[in-house]
Design a protein around this nucleic acid. Structure first.
Lengths: 346, 346
DNA sequence: TATTAGCACTCGTTTTGGGTGAGTGCTAAT
DNA sequence: ATTAGCACTCACCCAAAACGAGTGCTAATA
């Protein structure tokens, strides 16, 4: 029984222990496990096995006369190779589908997905906003404002509208701006924003010789307008209050730090980013995430795709002691549903 | 000493009591008050006075052998006529001003104001988004999408861009849409959205006879586009996690309900609306608000103006036991600063 | 008449200590 | 290798006791 490998029996026992602990949150003792477990073993034997499991760091006793509780390592082994996931029933899937809806507005869709996740899991649901690598310019429009400022309206990706205000050298009339816009639209429409910037550079060379001042202005203006505001990414969070109902979150101070992290967004984003280039559901258990505030939380995340390309991540955040077998398929399916729905309205 | 009027001494005592209670959160007893209070009275006398105050419902003893705690009525009297507010120092005001900044983007400005409020008060800061009564249309633009849908871009109030998608009867070409936009721009530019709708109705009458199909289409399209999505109002909340640090919020269940109310927004909005047509700082103490979740909270709110017209409300939400003397001027000044800053960038 | 000292009393809080029970590790028997 | 038996540990519960801040009432006082 000594050694670093876990035999069949020990694994099964660990599985039972974790399941039991997840179910009712109490440290589980040898007696319980003996009764519960499928195999017939006396408590004493089980104690021996548990002692081994403890030596190997899979479980841990809060104090001498308490049962055992899974450690992070224990959970890890559990989700990696012990967990049996029952696939969702068709009916459940279609309920999820229906509840996500197929709103025209992708923003609303994402919000609904995160709410969905939080509702069905009773934890916090999170949906990262899509990273749109390729923004293809459809049309640009300029409107004069006071104080040498110009309102720029960009229509990208067919139906998305961005607008920003730029500062110009002098005052342009509406007519001039119209001309500039026409010029730029003709030059750049349909291109991706990054190639647009290249196009502008090239054009600048050409125009310099031809000496058309307005064109030169146009290019300079466009340079400003198309400077991508670095979009640091963002996410939608729903149901964070659900987390307040878990007694393992009883520590208000910790809970507060967690909520602050949600507001700060940065750490959570970084964590989600890690799933961006992964395939399928990823799980971060407790400290594994590397973020102290998530000490006692697990994150179950999955990338979602549009056009076969991963554009974002969604998932749930909850206590380490969560029903992984239920949560994992929910996250998985929701990611797929969101992807296909986004595809449809693209 | 019996009677319903409070004599000078009783008022002063109440003032001291509330101040003391606000300072350290413990029920305050006759002994403490005797030591603390400016006037020289024995604990026994003070007990007599306190008994009266209790009869009149201004204070309340949590149990027989505890000191007294202000009731809602007590707080009310305190803030209404006992409270001495020290005006903010110039330096503090300019710090506030600086920290709000003068971002070009009004959205960022509002966010910064609410963060500001929460930071300096260590409570939750809230800023209602401006109600813009008059949206004056500057320009409208149509872009064809697939499936008989059209992307409408509205530029209102000089520099604000709205966009929505409408469903049309048939497919229009870009050129047709351009024509329609020109027509509408000529017809309606500069008008307020509400008069625009009227203009359209009138125009419809006229056009019906002249039988120009495209114009008729244009009007129908505009009807759709200008149907105001009822903007139910919204607010920006910052620092709600601050509330988790007050021991009077120890009850997680209650705190959760409060946070849920923040997310629901509706109740909070209604409450803030009440300050919309008030002059100066308004205070809702505990149950006074009429919303159960705010039982143990007070809301200090003030309308803010642009162009001399009230367009929104801002304030803070915190425990009933808050330092009103400090919070009230902060809210007051912040409202003024936000107003003037908004004015500048308008 | 208003104020105050004195005193018995109340009641939440803290401390103490025994009892309980779930669970353990170890040892010896199977 | 497994199990029964047993002494031991320790969180938890509960009741009793000690504590102390604060009260209301009464009688004395200015």
């Amino acid at each position: 029984m000594s050694g670093t490998e876990l035999n069949e029996r020990a694994q099964l026992l660990l599985k039972n222990l974790v399941e039991r602990y997840i179910r009712d949150g109490q440290p589980v003792g040898s007696r319980t496990l003996s009764r519960e477990s499928s195999m017939v073993l006396s408590p004493a034997t089980i104690r021996n096995v548990m002692a081994d499991l403890e030596d190997l760091g899979f479980i841990h006793a809060p104090h001498t006369s308490a049962g055992r509780v899974p450690t992070i390592r224990g959970y890890r082994l559990f989700v990696d190779s012990l967990l049996t996931i029952q696939p969702l029933k068709k009916s459940v899937i279609s309920t999820l589908q229906r509840r996500i809806g197929n709103n025209e507005d992708p923003g609303k869709l994402l919000a609904s997905a995160s709410r969905q996740l939080s509702d069905v899991t009773s934890m916090a649901g999170v949906v990262m906003l899509p990273k749109r690598e390729q923004l293809s310019l459809r049309q640009v429009e300029f409107l004069p404002l006071s104080h040498n400022r110009v309102l720029v309206i960009l229509v990208v990706n067919e139906k998305e509208v961005q607008n920003r205000i730029i500062q110009t050298q002098r005052n342009y009339s509406a007519a001039e701006l119209q001309q500039i816009a026409n010029y730029l639209n003709q030059l750049c429409a349909g291109q991706e924003l990054r190639t647009v910037r290249q196009t502008l550079l090239n054009e600048m060379e050409d125009t310099r010789s031809s000496m058309n001042q307005l064109m030169a202005d146009a290019i300079q203006m466009a340079q400003q307008a198309f400077t991508e505001e670095e979009q640091n990414g963002d996410f939608l969070l729903a149901g964070q209050t659900n987390l307040m109902s878990y007694e393992e979150m009883g520590n208000l101070e910790k809970l507060r730090k967690l909520f602050d992290a949600f507001n700060r967004k940065r750490d959570i984003l970084k964590l989600l980013d890690q799933s961006l280039h992964a395939e399928g559901v990823q799980i971060f258990i407790g400290e594994e995430s590397g973020y102290e505030v998530l000490d006692e939380c697990s994150v179950v995340a999955s990338p979602y795709k549009v056009d076969g390309e991963v554009i974002g991540v969604l998932g749930v955040i909850g206590p380490t002691r969560m029903a992984y077998d239920r949560v994992i398929p929910i996250v998985d399916v929701t990611a797929q549903l969101l992807g296909t729905t986004l595809n449809q309205i693209k």
